[in-house]
Simulated scan of single mutants.
Amino acid sequence: MIDSSEQNDEQYLLLEEAGAPVAARQPLAEEVAVAFCYNGISHAVMMASPGALEDFAVGFSLTSGVISHRDQLLDLDISLQEDSVVLDMTLNQRTLNQLKISRRTMAGTSSCGLCGVDALAQALKPVPHSARINFNQLPPAAHFSDLRARFQNAQQHLQSSGAMHAAIYVDEHGETRFCREDIGRHNALDKLIGACVREGFGLQNGFVAITSRCSLELIQKSMCSGVGTLVSLASPSDMAVRWARKYYLNLLHQPVQGPARLYSGRGLGRGPEAYSPAGVSQ
């Protein structure tokens, strides 16, 4: 059994509208890429928490139709790496033959975002076309303070049907320009990015905000599209913070109460150590 009880404390800055930012620490949920392999065949990669992996192996195998009975799974070997886990399972010969016949690219779901990826290297590949060498300047802290109200005003489908994620783009002047909704958080972000690109808005300025938690794949999507600042309404995962810092993406969490929390930006991990929001000179 893998022990995932330890949480990773990450430093962040509380961005008060007046006064200097305050350093603090927050435990973040762990996130790893989990590869499901059957008799050496790479089948799928899921972004997940690294606990109860034996249960995950059996449950995923059952619910995805790879096995129909527990005794068809003969053995399980777990290999741990820094940002990934390989679940190498051995099926009996009849079940393996059925898998080979029926195996196809798995359809994406609204929950994991990486279903059907055939290798860990693909899931954790470097972000292409990322030549950024420093963090962009942050928008003013006041632009984040009414973020939940912005979503409530912009989300039309949520008010009528519920069960919808959303992503919004707020420009450098603090104006909400676009809102896109979808049952899938990744889809909502894709739609928002598409709207901004089609209308010629540069995503390096202002900020993109999402209603969901922030995990690795949303960092990857943001970097591929040139987003300078990403804000989420739920805490980011530990891997999301590491990758945001690696690729110089400003990453913030706006809690229900209190100021925004800066997890990746100037003064946190990479780049110059001075914090400088828009409109504040050093």
Rank of each mutant, 00 (worst) to 15 (best):
C179H: 01
G202L: 13
V208A: 04
R213T: 13
F201L: 15
F207H: 03
R198T: 12
N205L: 09
I210C: 08
G184V: 05
G200K: 11
A209Q: 01
G184E: 08
D182A: 15
H186D: 11
F201C: 10
K191G: 08
C214W: 05
N187E: 14
R185G: 09
V197T: 12
G206K: 07
I193P: 02
R177M: 09
C214H: 09
E217T: 13
L192E: 01
Y169T: 06
F201S: 12
L203M: 14
G184Q: 06
G200W: 10
Q204K: 13
T176C: 11
R213Y: 14
V208W: 00
H186T: 05
G200S: 12
A195P: 03
R198M: 13
K191C: 10
C179G: 02
R180V: 06
Q204V: 11
D171T: 08
F207N: 01
G202Q: 14
Y169N: 04
S212G: 13
F207V: 01
G206F: 00
L218W: 04
E175F: 09
H173A: 15
Q204R: 13
N205K: 14
F178M: 07
C196E: 05
E199C: 12
C214P: 06
V197L: 14
A209R: 04
D182E: 13
L216H: 13
I210R: 03
G194I: 03
F178C: 01
I183K: 12
G206I: 05
D190M: 05
I183C: 11
D182V: 05
R213A: 15
L216G: 08
A188Q: 06
G174Q: 07
D190H: 10
D182Y: 09
R198V: 09
G174P: 06
N187K: 12
G202M: 12
A188E: 03
E181F: 07
H186F: 13
F178L: 08
A195V: 11
C214M: 14
T211H: 04
F178G: 03
I193G: 03
T176Q: 08
I183N: 12
E181T: 03
R177Q: 11
G194K: 09
C214D: 04
R185D: 11
L203T: 08
G194A: 10
N187V: 08
F207T: 01
G202W: 08
T176Y: 00
S215G: 12
G202S: 15
I168H: 00
D182S: 14
R177S: 01
R177C: 08
V208C: 08
L203K: 10
E181G: 02
T176P: 03
